[in-house]
């Protein structure tokens, strides 16, 4: 009960604020309720769950090494795009992949793709803000992610990779 209350306290506070404001400005209150009803969509969770269960991340990691070339890049993008959860969940996953042989470039591509190109999320984005907005953002993100992956690898190189790995041996 206490945990439940803690989880919901911000929502309850928001409800109170909205309730008070809605009572003072009934017009705005009605409008707010209308906006709220339209925008709660739940189905996206099912998509995320399915992707999470079916994508064998650990088994793919060794195929993303230094010599993996274009194929490795494509795989890294797909792997990130088929993931679930916010970016900070991706850091431990990326660490495991790094240890299993994924190159630094592909790690950054994976992280970038995870953060802004997740397919279930893009479907949801299309539903919310429309296909032109969603797909152009998707394309521009992809270009940036590839560019950043290559640039970051150039800038950081192998020592940083070694450093990161050593940090986890401790």
């Amino acid at each position: 009960m206490k945990v439940l209350l803690k989880k919901w306290r911000i929502a309850i506070a928001a409800l109170l604020i909205t309730g008070v404001l809605g009572a003072v400005f009934p017009e705005a209150g009605r409008e707010a309720l209308k906006l709220l009803g339209v925008n709660i969509s739940t189905i996206i969770g099912i998509l995320l769950g399915l992707f999470d269960v079916w994508v064998p991340r650990e088994r793919i990691a060794p195929h993303l090494g230094e010599a993996s070339g274009i194929r490795g890049i494509v795989l890294a993008v797909l792997l990130g795009a088929s993931s679930a959860g916010p970016l900070y969940v991706a850091f431990p996953v990326a660490e495991v992949m790094l240890r299993k042989g994924t190159s630094l470039r592909n790690i950054f591509i994976f992280l970038g793709s995870w953060s802004s190109m997740r397919l279930p999320m893009v479907l949801f984005e299309i539903q919310s803000v429309g296909p032109v907005f969603a797909l152009s953002r998707f394309a521009a993100s992809l270009a940036g992610i590839l560019l950043m992956g290559v640039l970051l690898e150039r800038l950081l190189g192998l020592e940083v990779r070694q450093e990161i790995l050593e940090r986890f041996e401790k």
Binding site: L21, A32, G45
Partner: peptide, 30 residues
């Protein structure tokens, strides 16, 4: 397993989702 995860996600996301949408909705309306 996937559906269980989905339910979990939904339960976790509902409080912040309601809160944010309520606040954004009322601000936008006002």
């Amino acid at each position: 397993k996937a559906l269980k995860k989905a339910l979990n996600t939904f339960v976790n996301i509902l409080p912040p989702l309601t809160a944010t949408l309520l606040l954004v909705s009322i601000s936008v309306a006002l």
